[in-house]
Design a protein around this nucleic acid. Structure first.
Lengths: 235, 235
DNA sequence: CAAGATTAAACTGTCGACAATCGACGATTA
DNA sequence: TAATCGTCGATTGTCGACAGTTTAATCTTG
């Protein structure tokens, strides 16, 4: 008779998942700059602080390692990754490659609903530009770009974007300021949306290439101003 | 005065790493088809079979999950991923995106040494084409493409390629045969090397796009011939 | 006989413990 | 004095165990 399951599909609140929680907490700690690049991640310490055992912490650390937020020196432990200028370059280079592709795919899947979603996000960016919260502004910016990857409709593409984004977020904690006027940034996204609706692959590619390239150049400047970084790979 | 270190560089013998070993063994088992898509991965079973405890197995499984070879259903365990036609499409689509980019980068870094390395690999492919070992032929094919990513000089690009390749290798165990005459495949790589030396980005992109696209179409045909696959995501 | 309820087995998630290893600090020697 | 050696505390890698949940197997009942 099946009266057991009220058929509505709610998002499973499967948060008995310690590993995932620990991973999120660690990620946040790294992004927020509470754990600085190069810092050692002491398993027992984290475990005690979170009130769990070391096993979930280790598994979470392995996740963040694969994600590029931590590096593992066998028998020595995990360390917060130190991104060097060359890493930033690699990430932005890949980001351009990936997002150009996502843009072209997205333009093919463009529907009124999608268009509105992007449009609304740009509005949010303008609103956020008024208040003085850089972290928030950057987050809204990422959201827009993430939407493009969502619309592109490839899970792998989206995950790749998320990975790159979380690596980039690491540096934000260090830079701590934007590379341009928030309103201007929001405007460039309007232009981007426009060419997406247009639908010419070459133009989309050129536009996104320029758009992200601009951020790359600016961020690159800021990073190179920072205290020089020797890689976490000691000895 | 620095008389401390006799400077001889020995290769570090860092393989006490159980997790890595387990991960490699599981990966091989999946690629070789010993663990079929959809199969449950029983931690205790693997652990006993390998003579280790469950902890390293779990951590290895998490690695393979992030790599896309396993899927984790919380509280139910890990399962060998079932790739559907749409997954294959996603992977090839991304592969084209990534390798086109790698090709352009590689052509910029092209040196005589690199050129020779690629040339020699093509020779190996021709040699391998003579003997009847499909797995080996495919492996040599991948090696060539991997070299391009290496020459491109981006660690992230290379890792991305490796991830995609290992996902694709999963299906090979199922398909079990090549999609074309091995010699012909080797020849197409010669053409590829040629345009790489030439160095025109657009031509390189077009060439690689076509090259991988051809494989995609052929593999796609083969996959769709196989027994249909419902995703491992039950309920 | 089939569908549902009940019980038993198997498995996962998590924990605490123990040995092996690493890094630091001080002792030793030229 | 400066470099090397030895020792000690801290930390990792791995293990076995236990509780809670899922799966299967069995029993019940209409």
């Amino acid at each position: 008779m099946r009266l057991m399951s009220p058929p509505v599909g709610l998002t499973a609140l499967a948060d008995t998942d310690l590993v995932g929680q620990v991973a999120r907490i660690l990620t946040q700690a790294i992004i927020k700059g509470q754990m600085l690049p190069g810092a050692k991640v002491v398993e027992a310490g984290i475990a005690r602080e979170l009130g769990v055992s070391r096993a979930p912490v280790r598994e979470a650390a392995r996740l963040l390692e694969q994600q590029g937020l931590l590096v593992s020196h066998p028998r020595r432990g995990f360390f917060v990754r130190k991104l060097e200028a060359t890493d930033i370059d690699e990430i932005y280079d890949l980001r351009i490659c990936v997002e150009c592709h996502a843009g072209v795919l997205a333009s093919k899947n463009m529907t009124p609903a999608n268009r509105d979603m992007l449009r609304r996000q740009i509005d949010v960016m303008h609103e956020t530009a008024a208040i003085d919260d850089h972290a928030r502004q950057i987050e809204e910016d990422y959201k827009f770009h993430r939407m493009i990857c969502e619309i592109a409709g490839s899970k792998r593409l989206l995950r790749l974007f998320d990975d790159l984004a979380s690596e980039l977020r690491m540096t934000i904690g260090l830079i701590g300021r934007l590379y341009d006027d928030p309103h201007r940034i929001a405007q460039t996204h309007e232009a981007l949306l426009e060419v997406l609706e247009q639908g010419h692959p070459d133009i989309i590619t050129a536009r996104i290439d320029y758009h992200i390239g601009a951020a790359w150049r600016e961020v690159g400047k800021l990073v190179r101003e920072l205290p020089s970084s020797t890689n976490g790979a000691a000895t």
